[in-house]
Structure formats: C-alpha cells, structure tokens
Design a protein around this nucleic acid. Structure first.
Lengths: 200, 200
DNA sequence: GGGTGCATGTAATGGGTTACATGATTCT
DNA sequence: AGAATCATGTAACCCATTACATGCACCC
C-alpha cells in the first residue's frame, strides 16, 4: 500500500503554527513564502482544512469582517502539533522533479536552435527576476522582526538564491554552447548548398 | 479544459529517435539518462506505447531472443517525428517543484535540530554521490562516440552538475548555520537550568 | 453597473504511482 | 530448486489541478 500521505495537510498545520489563518490566507502564504519549493491549490486547501477540523487537528471559528466578506479562521490544536512533530521527524523522500525545459533540450537534435535559445533566454529572464526577489526577501528577513522561524526561513530563501544563481550560470554557459552549435549547423548547410550550386 | 497533456508520450517518442527500443529498455534509459530531471514508471510506459502504436506514432515488431525472453521493439514513425517536433516547439511551462526537505526545514522551529542536521547530511551524501556520477557521465560523453544528440546530452548533464554543486554548497552553509542555532539553544537551556538550580 | 479583490467551496477529470500478476531464462 | 534479471502488462487508488459556482464588499 505505502500511501503517498503527501504532506498536504502537514503544510497547513505547519503554517498555522506561525499564526491562525483562513484558507484564503494559507493560499497566499503558500504562494508568496514557500511557493518556490511547495505549492497547493485551493481545491486542496479547503477540503483538507475541513478534514483536519473534523479530526480535531485544528480548531476553527467564524470571523465577521465589516469591510470584507466573513471568513473562517483556523488555528492549530495540540493534536495537530503532535501530528506535525511526528511528520517532521520522518526522513524526507528525495523528490522526483520533472523539468520540461531540460527534456526538450535533451532532444535538442530534433529541434530548431532558435527555439531552444528562446527557451533558455526566457528561463534566464524568469529566474533572474525570481533571484532578485529572493535577495529582497532574504534582506527583509535579516532586518525585519525576528520570529522563532526566521533562521529557518532564511535558510530556505538561501536555497532559492543559490540554486537560481547556479541556474543562471548554466543558462549563460548553455547559450554560448548553443551559439557554437548554430554556427556549425550554418556552415554545414552552407557547404551543402555550395555543393548543390557547384561552388568551390 | 486546458489538459495537462503531460509529455509522457513525447518522452518515449524522443528516446525512440535515438534508436528503436523495447518498453523495458525505455524504462532503463529514462532511469539512467534523464532520471535526474524526468521519470516514468512502467505503469505509464507500457500503456502509452500501446496507445502510440494504435495511433500510428510508432511501429512495433516482436523480437525473438535466444538467451532472454522475447520482447517487443518499438520504432518511431514519420507521424511520431511530426508530433515530437510540434511538442518541441511549445514553450516549456516552468515546473512546480515539491521539496519536502526544504518544507521540513522551513518548519524547523518545530523540530529537533539533530533531526534537521541528519536530513541535510544525508542530502549532502546522496547528492555528492550523484554529482560524482554526473562528472563520470559528462566525461564519457566527451570522449565517447559522438551522436547528433551528444552536445545536448552534455548540456543536460552540466545542468545536473552545476545544480548539485550549488546544493552541496548550500548544505555546507546550512549545516554551519544549524550548528550555530544548536549552540544557542543549548546555552539558552543551560541558562534556564542554571536559573532553576540557582547557579550563577 | 461593472470590475476587482476577498472568500469559500464542490465536481470532474486525469495523470501517475504502486501493487498485483505472469512468465521466460540464466545462474548458483 | 530458488534467486535474479529480463520482460510485459493491468487495475486500483489517490493526489492534484482545473473548472465551475456562488456571494460579499468596495470603488470607479
């Protein structure tokens, strides 16, 4: 059997140790704070909160807001803290990534160089922007208010920084390599066209 | 709607451009050559090959072997090459990774430092071994027989190298950081126990 | 009145792993 | 005889995204 158990509920428990939140808040925090290494959709968050509440891992209470729609605030229960602690003690399984860009590059011989260059360039742009964002976040964690979690959040942000920096170095190297290949392909096709036209 | 379409069939087509192979072979090649950025289970490979054959994207023929069980060899058809080319031209979507180790580290304030240190140490060991493996693969691609795909395979291997190297630097930095935190936690609890015992 | 952000949910769909099932061949 | 590797396949299950559905409050 070995169910994937999947950590989706535990993320919610973990975030609720920071402070009580609504499902909507959790969605935002996941996207903005741990989005670079974890994400959850609302189609996952709301049902899981309901289940966690039904099983006594979290408490919930309705909150009336005057300027915004009402909402339901969840807070972690002792039973939830226990579950979180147990999960935290389990050795994390090395994840199996799926990198479509690398896959397409791997099959590069079947593709046009211009296309591949475009893919890598866009990756560099995207990840460059992300990197600058991480540097901002890391700086804020340094000077902002210190929570018990701050040192750990910084380590996670550093991971993003270091990894993105590595990716950017790879994009530079690969763009150079792709240019070399493009040069060769061009000269080869020139040769062939010269042959066809009886030149040289 | 926007079906995930998922690239699972295209990987098979892509690998079959290298040479005709059986489903079993494809499983091995996926694990050994592109396993660091893509993987497929046999429960995915066999049914997809069948579908690809039924739709005319690949051809298949039975092969009798005297020293091993019989097997079915698949080869890419012109229609399959077309499909592959179309897929290759589509901008790859940035993947959404799920890194359980980072997630647990992010909630580090709720865990024991010794546990976290163990996680990171094991990650360093695992990825260190993978890095050495990549260096070997990259060297073999340099000196081995040159296929049309070789330059691209090298780029993919370099990605693995560069990324793993970055990860290892992060593990070193993080282990140092965790040690600092452990020191603080110890002195804090010592202080508290001194207070309890009326020391100082 | 319409757009946007806040807020909560359900249902359909589907991708993918895991487990199960079977069998040949070779080596010890 | 049993273990290991080669080889192919199916079925169950489940995780997760996406789409759909609804409604409040606020501002232009």
């Amino acid at each position: 059997m070995a169910k994937r158990s999947s950590s989706s509920k535990e993320v919610l428990l973990g975030l609720l140790t920071i402070e009580p939140m609504s499902g909507y808040d959790l969605g935002q925090v996941i996207r903005d704070s741990i989005g670079h290494f974890w994400n959850e959709s609302y189609g996952q968050i709301y049902p899981n909160l309901k289940k966690l509440a039904a099983e006594g891992f979290v408490g919930s209470k309705a909150e009336r807001q005057k300027d915004k729609p009402d909402r339901r605030i969840y807070s972690i229960a002792p039973k939830g803290r226990k579950r979180l602690a147990e999960w935290l003690a389990i050795e994390p399984q090395p994840e199996i990534p799926r990198n479509e860009l690398l896959l397409k590059l791997f099959f590069g011989a079947q593709a046009s160089i211009e296309t591949l260059v475009g893919f890598v360039e866009r990756m560099a742009e995207r990840e460059g922007a992300q990197l600058r964002n991480f540097e901002r976040i890391h700086a804020e964690l340094e000077k902002g208010r210190q929570y018990p979690g701050t040192p750990y959040w910084k380590m996670a942000a550093r991971f993003g920084q270091i990894e993105l920096d590595a990716h950017l170095r790879w994009t530079q190297e690969s763009l150079a390599e792709l240019n070399k290949i493009a040069g060769k392909r061009r000269s080869r096709s020139l040769t062939r066209s010269e042959e066809r036209h009886g030149t040289k």
